[in-house]
Each structure stands twice: as C-alpha cells, then as structure tokens.
Amino acid sequence: MLRVEGLSHAFKNGNETTLVLQQIDFRVNKGDMVALLGSSGSGKSTLLNLMAGLMKPTEGSIYIADHNIVKMNENKLAEFRREHIGFIFQAYELIPNLTVRENIELPLVFQSTRPSIRKQKALKLLEQVGIPDKGEMFPSQLSGGQQQRVSIARSLITEPSVIFADEPTGNLDTKTEEEILAILKHLNKTMNTTFIIVTHEREVAQQTQHIITLRDGLLEKSQPAVEMDKLPVEEAVH
C-alpha cells in the first residue's frame, strides 16, 4: 500500500546542508494503523510531509497505491492527494466560515462531486464520528474534540488509500485524546482505512498496530506496537 524506499532529505541553509532524513525504508500494508514516533527534530514531520507530497525528497521514492508520488508535478500531486490521501491536522484546520457539513464535504467539492451525494456521505460520516447533530453548526461553536472529529470525518470523505494524522491528539486533554484514538481505531477496523499517525507520545503510538521510531533522521526501529509495550519507557522513546 505504502512503500518508502531509500528516502533521504536535506535542507540547505546558505552553504550549510542539514540532513534531516537518511536512507529511510519501510512499507505499510493496506488497513494498517502505523505510528511514526520520534522526539522533536527526529524528522517525523518531514517524513509525513514527504509522504503527503507536500515536499520533494532529495533522494528516494515513495509509492502510494503503486504510484511513485516523487515523480509527480504539483497539479498531478493535487489530484493524487484528492483521490488517495486524507489529512488530520493537530490544530484541526477547519474553514471557519463553512459549516461543519460543508467542511467535511470540501475535498469532494474539489472532485466536482454532486451536492446530494456529498451531503449524504457527510451526514453518514458525522454519525460515524459521533456528532450527527452538529452538521449545520460552525467550527467555532464546537469543542476541540468535536472539531477533531470533524477533521477525521473530512479526511475520510474521499475514501482515501491512506490517512496521515499529524499529532491528532496534540491539542486535546487526556479524556478527549482517548475518545479520538478510539474513533480512529474503530474507523481503521470497520472501514479498513490505512492510518499513519505522527506522534511524539508513546501512549498514542501504543494504540496503533505498528510503530516506526525515528531518531536524528534515521529509522531506529520498526516493530509491532505490542513488542514496544514490553520495553521500558526510556528505551521505547529514546
């Protein structure tokens, strides 16, 4: 489903070159829920941006649904993202002047889907994320947890091949964090959607099936979450 091969990325700052990712290789199967775990500066966000096609790597290939996204131009990538990639942001990133339902429908708007079909799908997803009565409200009228549920529903509306979640619980309290993770796990199971969750929290990563640990731009470990659970805290996250 997702294949990362020999991926390296360097930032240039004047004459100085900083290598942020080095020779990363891993694969994620369809329906997997994978965590990219690492501390600040480990390169996990850069890796997420590269996999989402928001940046071009210095070296290597990224295959999503057998398409090498590294070779795609900006418009092709936009089209590809529209069809195959879903996004969940840490700060939800909902459009404030659109209603909750309109926010969820937005990716389908760019696909020119008929309004009636969009509405039907959005209402179904609102039910799945547990806020069926909030469709006509505006994001500012919702709590953080509810806004993240909207963001999850929006990421699912195009039925993408993979959903990237960037610190999805980073702005939430513990109780809401648990609720959101439960929703993600439920959706992963029921809809067989592939999730890649970027996090620096070991507890969040442990909710997934597989954990890829990054340290100083290198892939340190790639192991099932259950195995990590057995390690002491210091070793699990550097």
Partner: peptide, 16 residues
C-alpha cells in the same frame, strides 16, 4: 494563505 494551504492539502489544484 493558511486557508489556501489547507485547501491545497485537501486536493485543490492551482486552477481551482
């Protein structure tokens, strides 16, 4: 520009 960025991440292309 933030809103434009979000729309682009959600799949809006240049012409849209």
């Amino acid at each position: 520009r933030r809103q434009i960025g979000i729309m682009k991440v959600l799949g809006a292309n240049l012409s849209q």
